[in-house]
C-alpha cells in the first residue's frame, strides 16, 4: 500500500493504527475469557480483577479428566471430520462437472445448491429431528455429519468450482489423448493441480461444521453430544460455573487456531471462494 498515495513520514504510523486497534478489539474478549478460565470461582464472584490473583488450572484439570466433559470434544471432532470427508469427496466430481461441462439444468441446479447454503438452520431443526429419527440415526455422529452436508456440500462445490475453473482445459484434453481414463486422470493429474483448493475447501467445511451448534445440539442427546451441549448443561444445572465455562470455551478456540495456522497463506483466496 505504500506505492499508491504520496506517503509522508507522518502518515505511516497512522496506517498501522487501524489494524492494530482492530486486532486489539478482537483480542480483548478472548483475553477476558482466558483470564476467567484461570480464576477460582470465589475470585470470579468476588468482583472485578484484570488478571487472576490466585492463579489456578483446576478448571482445565476438571475438563481434561472428566469424560462427561472431554467426550464432548471427541464427539464434535468425529462428526466434523466425517462431514468434511463426505462433503469434499462428493463435491469434487460435481465441481468438475460444473466447471467443464454444460448439461441440462446445470445453472438451475447450481443455484438450487447455493440456496441451501442460505437456508436458515432454524427452519430445518424439527424436520431434521424427525427425518433422522425415522432413519434410526438420531443421536449418532452420522446424523450431525449428514445434516451439516446441507450447507457444506454447496459451499464445497462453489469453492472447488472456482479453483477448477482456473485450470486450463487443455490439460484435460492432453491427458485424454495420452490415454488416461477419467478416474485416473482425475486422481493422478487433476487433484494434485488443485491441491491448495482442496485444502481450502476442507478448511471451510471443517470450520462451518465446527461452529454450527443449533443442528448439532438438537440432533443428539447423549451418545454423540457435542461440546456446545455439554457447556449449555453446565451453565444451567450447576449454577454459575463461570471458570469451567471459560476454560471449556478456551479449549474450543484451540483446534480452530491450529487449523488457521496451517492454511494462513491460502485463507484469503479461499474466503474469496477461489474467485479472485
Amino acid at each position: 500500500m505504500s506505492a499508491p498515495a504520496r506517503p509522508t513520514a507522518r502518515r505511516i504510523p497512522l496506517k498501522w493504527l487501524v489494524p492494530t486497534l482492530y486486532i486489539l478489539f478482537l483480542m480483548l474478549p478472548i483475553y477476558w475469557l482466558i483470564n476467567m478460565s484461570f480464576k477460582t470461582t470465589n475470585e470470579i464472584l468476588g468482583g472485578f480483577s484484570p488478571y487472576p490473583k490466585n492463579f489456578t488450572v483446576d478448571s482445565y484439570v476438571e475438563i481434561l479428566t472428566n469424560p462427561a466433559w472431554y467426550m464432548g470434544y471427541v464427539n464434535s471432532m468425529i462428526y466434523v471430520v466425517l462431514n468434511t470427508v463426505i462433503s469434499v469427496t462428493v463435491a469434487l466430481p460435481a465441481a468438475y462437472a460444473f466447471s467443464r461441462y454444460r448439461f441440462m439444468g446445470d445453472k438451475h441446479l447450481f443455484f438450487w445448491l447455493l440456496t441451501n447454503r442460505m437456508a436458515p438452520p432454524a427452519v430445518f431443526v424439527l424436520p431434521f429431528v424427525e427425518l433422522y429419527s425415522s432413519m434410526g440415526l438420531f443421536d449418532t455422529y452420522w446424523a450431525v455429519a449428514l445434516a451439516h452436508c446441507l450447507f457444506n456440500i454447496p459451499l464445497a462445490v462453489w469453492i472447488l468450482e472456482g479453483f477448477m475453473s482456473g485450470v486450463p482445459k487443455e490439460i484435460d484434453e492432453t491427458a485424454y489423448i495420452d490415454g488416461y481414463s477419467f478416474p485416473k486422470f482425475f486422481v493422478k493429474i487433476f487433484m494434485p493441480l488443485i491441491a491448495s483448493g482442496i485444502g481450502v475447501t476442507a478448511f471451510f467445511c471443517f470450520m462451518f461444521s465446527w461452529v454450527e451448534m443449533l443442528l448439532a445440539k438438537n440432533l443428539t442427546t447423549v451418545a454423540a453430544k457435542p461440546i456446545a451441549a455439554v457447556m449449555t448443561r453446565t451453565a444451567s444445572t450447576s449454577g454459575y460455573e463461570l471458570g469451567l465455562l471459560a476454560a471449556a470455551g478456551v479449549l474450543t478456540i484451540i483446534p480452530g487456531a491450529i487449523v488457521i495456522y496451517f492454511v494462513r497463506n491460502y485463507i484469503a483466496k479461499g474466503f474469496a471462494l477461489g474467485r479472485v
Binding site: 482492530y22 486486532i23 478482537l26 483480542m27 478472548i30 470450520m207 465446527w210 461452529v211 454450527e212 451448534m213 461440546i227 456446545a228 457447556m231 449449555t232 470455551g249 474450543t252 478456540i253 483446534p255 480452530g256 487456531a257 487449523v259 488457521i260 495456522y261 494462513r264 485463507i267
Partner: peptide, 13 residues
C-alpha cells in the same frame, strides 16, 4: 491468523 480467529469459534462460545 489473528483476524480469522473469531471466525472459528463455535457460535455458542
Amino acid at each position: 491468523v489473528l483476524m480469522a480467529l473469531p471466525l472459528l469459534i463455535p457460535w455458542n462460545v
